[in-house]
Simulated scan of single mutants.
Amino acid sequence: MTLATIVALAGATEHHGNAQAETFPFFVIAIVVFLALGLVTLSYRNVANRHAHKAQAYAEAHPVDLSQAGHGHH
């Protein structure tokens, strides 16, 4: 047998299966990953309000000079 014959015979085999059942684990894995990422995202909700006392203390220690505020416009 030559290499070309082996490749041709290997490619000629047909696969008759349930494509939905074979790909379902990928769907489950994707859902689990997206749920995990969603939980990570939700864990950062309201973080600024948890540290409002620190923001207030920083604002009092570093007053804003309104003449310097903006995007470099004078």
Rank of each mutant, 00 (worst) to 15 (best):
M1I: 13
M1D: 14
M1W: 15
T2V: 06
T2M: 06
L3A: 05
A4L: 13
T5A: 12
T5H: 09
T5M: 08
T5K: 10
I6K: 07
I6N: 01
I6Q: 06
V7H: 04
V7L: 13
V7N: 05
V7I: 15
A8D: 11
A8N: 08
L9F: 07
L9R: 03
A10G: 05
A10S: 08
A10K: 02
A10P: 01
A10R: 02
A10F: 09
G11P: 00
T13M: 04
H15N: 06
H16D: 10
G17Y: 11
N18C: 10
N18F: 05
N18W: 03
A19K: 10
Q20K: 07
Q20P: 00
A21R: 08
A21L: 12
F24I: 01
P25K: 01
F26H: 07
F26V: 04
F27K: 03
V28A: 12
V28E: 12
V28C: 03
V28Q: 12
V28R: 05
I29V: 15
A30D: 04
I31G: 02
I31K: 07
V33E: 01
V33N: 00
V33H: 00
L35Q: 04
L35A: 14
L35G: 08
L35R: 01
L37A: 11
L37D: 01
G38C: 07
G38R: 04
L39W: 09
L39M: 13
L39G: 09
L39Y: 10
L39F: 14
L39H: 02
V40T: 09
V40K: 05
V40W: 07
V40G: 05
V40I: 15
V40E: 03
V40P: 00
T41D: 05
L42D: 09
L42Y: 12
S43T: 02
S43E: 03
S43W: 13
Y44F: 15
R45S: 13
R45K: 15
R45G: 11
R45Q: 14
R45N: 14
R45P: 02
N46K: 10
N46P: 00
N46E: 13
N46L: 11
V47I: 12
A48R: 13
A48Y: 14
N49T: 11
N49G: 14
N49R: 10
N49D: 15
R50C: 04
R50S: 09
R50F: 12
H51P: 00
A52S: 11
A52G: 01
A52T: 08
H53I: 03
H53V: 03
K54C: 04
A55G: 01
A55W: 15
A55F: 15
Q56L: 12
Q56N: 04
Q56K: 11
A57R: 08
A57K: 10
A57D: 08
A57Y: 05
E60H: 06
E60I: 06
A61Y: 02
A61D: 04
A61I: 02
H62A: 02
P63Y: 10
P63K: 08
P63V: 07
P63R: 07
D65T: 02
D65P: 02
L66F: 14
L66T: 11
L66S: 12
S67A: 12
Q68K: 12
A69F: 12
A69D: 06
A69M: 10
G70S: 05
H71P: 00
H71W: 12
H71K: 04
H71G: 03
H71F: 15
H71Y: 13
G72A: 05
G72L: 08
G72S: 04
G72P: 06
H73E: 13
H73A: 10
H73S: 08
H74C: 00
H74Q: 03
